[in-house]
Each structure stands twice: as C-alpha cells, then as structure tokens.
Design a protein around this nucleic acid. Structure first.
Lengths: 159, 159
DNA sequence: TTTCATTATGTAATAACATAACACTTTTGG
DNA sequence: CCAAAAGTGTTATGTTATTACATAATGAAA
C-alpha cells in the first residue's frame, strides 16, 4: 500500500514551499500547453501564501493590496483554470481554495482540516480509496469523483 | 462488519417514506425535549418530498407555495435545528439539504450523489470508517467530524 | 394564573460566494 | 499581417447565508 502525506503543519521553509509550487505549475503548464498568465500566477501565489484555504474574495483583496487590481470574475476564472489543471483544490465545506500538494499526478485527496489553527493537510491514502471502492461496489454505485473533508485537530493543536 | 444502505433510487412507497420520517422526528424530539414546531415540521416535510437535496431557497419557495409564508432566516433556523438533531444532512458540494435515512443513531455518512438523476443515497459502511480511522491515525490527526460525498452514477442511471 | 426567562419566529438589511453577458485585448497559428 | 482563439475588464446580477432587532409563543416558578 502506498501512503502519501503532505502535512501542512510540519515545520518547513514556506518560501521554498511557495516557489516550488510555482515552478511545478510552470512545468505543468509548459507540458500541457496551458498559459500561466500573470493573473493566474498571482492567484496561485496568493493561495500558496499559507496552508490555510482562502476564499475567492480574500484572494481578490490580497491581490488588490498589491499594485494590481482584479475583480471577482477574473479571480474565479483563474481559480477555474488552476482547478482544472489540478494545481489547487476547492474545500467545499469552507468555500475556499488551497494549493495542491501533489500536482504532478492525478489523485484523490483527503483533506485534514484543523478547526483550531485552520490549516489543511492533504493526504492520499490507498486504504481510503480501497474502502470507497468496496463500499460503492456494494451499493452498485459507479463513482466518478469524490470529496472527503475531515474536521478535527492537527498534531500541533491536540495539546 | 456491519454495512448499512438506504438506497434512495430503489422503488418504494415514498408517501410512507415521508410520514415515517416525520414520525421518527416527532419521537426523537419528544425524547430530547426539543420542539418540532410547525415551521420546523414544514421544512422537514418539504425536504422529504424527494430524495434529491433541496437548497434553502427552494425550501422557502416550496413553503411559500402553500398558505404559509416564510423568509430565509426562518428556514435557515429550522435547518440548523434539524441538522443538530441529525434529522437532515447538508450536502456541501451542492449547498443543499436532504433527509437523514438513519436518524435514530449517531453515524457518519457517505453520500452517493447521482449526477444523472440527482438522487442522493446515504450509506454507512464500516469499511470506510475503518479506513478513515487508520489514515488519520497515520497522520496523527484527531478526527471529529467529516463529510464524504461521492459523485457518480446510481444503478438506475448506469444503463 | 401571573410573571419572567427562554425559546422561537418575523422582518429588513446586508454579507459572502459565484456567474452571466458583453466589450476589449492579447496571443497564437496560418 | 490577419483571423481565430484565449484571456481579461467591467457591470450587473444571481445565489446562498447571516446579522440585528422586534415580536410572539412557550414553559417553569412563584
């Protein structure tokens, strides 16, 4: 079984985290012949400023704090683009968006949302895929996509 | 392993489905000393009209088609009440609400959402609980609640 | 049964999230 | 260079949810 974590709340060099996210985005766009325009890059970069999901309007505001100016439709279009490429994820329970920790391969995610510090960790665990596959088979349901969001306490907030 | 289904798309006597939901709600409220007021009962009943989730504004409209009149805050308050008692669930990916198929016991649900017919089936499968429990343990995350929504095709729509 | 605290609802206004429609600009490929 | 396609700007509006405050109904205690 392959198990993969990307634990947001671990100590890490976040500047590197951001720049690596951006360069992976660049690589992916080159590969897919997609255009990582300045607007899109700005949105991605703002989303990666933290490991807390950001709402579309918060992203808009953040960009407008700089010398650039955007309105919600522009931001939503960038979000759609980034979602489609798998560079970010939408957290349904929060109406917010977060950078993808595993943008290189298609995958299903589980989001671990800390209700204390607000961080979200992305985890890919085959045992969950297995379980969902079995359960849907039993129900004779044909799964195509899914969203799994777990609310609780991250290691750092369990005091 | 205990596995439990409540498959919305199976043929069934839906009138009975509704009235049984209402009477279970009554019983639960009696037991918990909670008040199933006319407004709350109306909201619950509207939600149970189908196995498709309904948005708060659709619920509002549906009630306003009758001789009663409500505004969104009232509906949202009723929704909050019903959610708290576990009589309905919120489907985050749809911003909509659906009757709970297992209101008698606390449980975690998996929602099987058919993208064709819009029906939502609720399923409780221990294998999923197990998997989530293992995965969160590995991540040292302490889970408190979760939402798992699977989009795909129900048996009837796989034709 | 009156009183008082609690719980529930009515209502207006607005916040928060998201998209439609159309004009304009930039990029890309012939 | 030109035309088509892709991306962005802008206005307006749609959709979902909440705040704040007034009023009404309920229930428990005196």
């Amino acid at each position: 079984m392959i198990t993969n974590y990307r634990i947001a709340y671990q100590q890490h060099d976040h500047q590197r985290c951001i720049s690596s996210a951006i360069s992976r985005a660049e690589a992916l766009c080159r590969q897919q012949n997609a255009r990582l325009t300045p607007t899109r890059r700005r949105v991605l970069s703002v989303i990666w400023q933290s490991h807390r999901p950001l709402g579309a309007y918060a992203i808009t505001e953040a960009i407008n704090q700089t010398e650039h100016r955007v309105l919600p439709p522009t931001v939503y279009r960038a979000i759609d683009f980034l979602l489609e490429l798998g560079l970010i994820h939408r957290i349904d329970s929060l109406n917010a968006y977060i950078g993808c920790a595993f943008p290189d391969a298609p995958h299903s995610d589980t989001f671990l949302i800390c209700r204390q510090c607000g961080s979200v960790a992305e985890c890919c665990d085959d045992i969950i895929e297995q379980a969902i596959s079995e359960a849907t088979q039993r129900a004779r349901f044909l799964p195509e996509s899914r969203s799994l969001e777990i609310l609780g306490l991250c290691p750092g907030c369990q005091g």
